[in-house]
């Protein structure tokens, strides 16, 4: 399934200045029982968002109307732990299209790229600046410019470039996914497989 393409995104951001946010927090295991990719946004950060009686925890940022937007900004080592793509689905389904952090766990980063959520890795300094700017003024807009690989807090506050390999960049810009690519080289794979005994 191809996904939404990503070009330039300008949006306010939701700050989550916590380190080592693991995928068990992003979506707890007990919500992984679906057989379709639907409705995971409802349980995004379930146990940080809701009390055990399902009432919202008012001090959690996703329940705070001050902050909104399509960009989620997290602390160092975001997305560690389990390989569950459901974490990326939940983030997407909730309405985020981009996650910014100073460091991402490997599998989570891949999962995001595979479904069209852009992971943007910035320096620790720039991350601190984003948190500060957004907390000072929740209307602060970030611009994530994929063609130029640049993330900006606006002229006054500065910007930084980010990395993405050119293959993945092309995919994100066009909404292509890897299966399209792999399907196109099927014959080559079959030849390889024939020479690779089980």
């Amino acid at each position: 399934m191809a996904y939404d393409s990503f070009n330039i995104l300008t949006s306010t951001a939701v700050p989550l200045p916590i380190e080592n946010v693991d995928t068990d927090q992003i979506i707890p295991a007990r919500f992984l029982k679906a057989t379709e990719r639907k409705g995971f946004g409802d349980n995004l950060f379930r146990d940080w968002r809701f009390n055990q009686d399902d009432t919202p925890k008012t001090d959690f940022v996703l329940n705070d109307a001050t902050y909104s937007g399509k960009i989620l900004v997290g602390g160092h080592n975001f997305g560690s732990g389990s390989s569950r793509e459901h974490a990326a689905w939940a983030i997407y389904d909730f309405g985020f299209r981009c996650v910014v952090s100073s460091f991402f766990a490997d599998i989570f980063r891949n999962n995001c790229l595979n479904i069209g959520v852009l992971p943007v890795q910035v320096s620790a300094n720039f991350l601190a600046q984003i948190f500060e700017a957004v907390e000072k003024d929740p209307n602060t807009k970030l611009t994530v410019d994929l063609p130029n690989q640049k993330i900006s807090l606006g002229a006054a506050l500065g910007s930084e470039s980010f990395e993405i390999n050119s293959y993945k960049k092309e995919n994100m810009l066009n909404g292509y996914d890897d299966i399209d690519y792999l399907n196109n080289i099927k014959a080559e794979i079959q030849t390889f497989a024939a020479n690779t005994p089980l």
Binding site: R84, E85, D106, D177
Partner: peptide, 22 residues
Amino acid sequence: FGIGTSEVEMVLASQCIMQPKP
């Protein structure tokens, strides 16, 4: 190594995944 569901689909469809060498 562990993979996400999109990659599970890739492996089912093509017996391959696409990742940079760590």
